[in-house]
Amino acid sequence: MSEHTHDHDHHEAEGPHVSLKEYVIGFVLAVILTVIPFWLVMGNVFESSTTTALLILPFMVVQIVVHMVFFLHMNFHSEGGWNMLALIFTLVLVFITLAGSLWVMISLNNNMMPGMMG
């Protein structure tokens, strides 16, 4: 029984190898990528809402990538690539869900007669 456990132990030197450098770089990047959009909105840097919105969305995307790489240790090697494959599949579904819903509903709103709009 103990042999089994031991064998199992050995097998399960699992999980990614993490380093302090990785976490610190990730944290510093995340702080920068958080502070800038908050500053853009709270400081009323731009007059136009559209400009601000279009500027802060890329910050969100980049910060999500930073979290994925430095905190969740995503790469193409872990779990023989299955991690990344699952992630890409999910991202495609997320994109279809978000873009599809917004596209359909906004077109619906635009094509309704003004009196019917809620």
Partner: peptide, 29 residues
């Protein structure tokens, strides 16, 4: 696979991601 649990848990997180995608889409609409 060596890290069966970790991969399985990752797959759970991906399904959780889809729940949030639906909620984000609802909010967006």
């Amino acid at each position: 696979p060596q890290n069966g649990t970790l991969l399985g848990f990752w797959l759970y997180l991906m399904s959780d991601c889809l729940i949030f995608a639906a909620l984000f889409a609802t909010y967006g609409v």
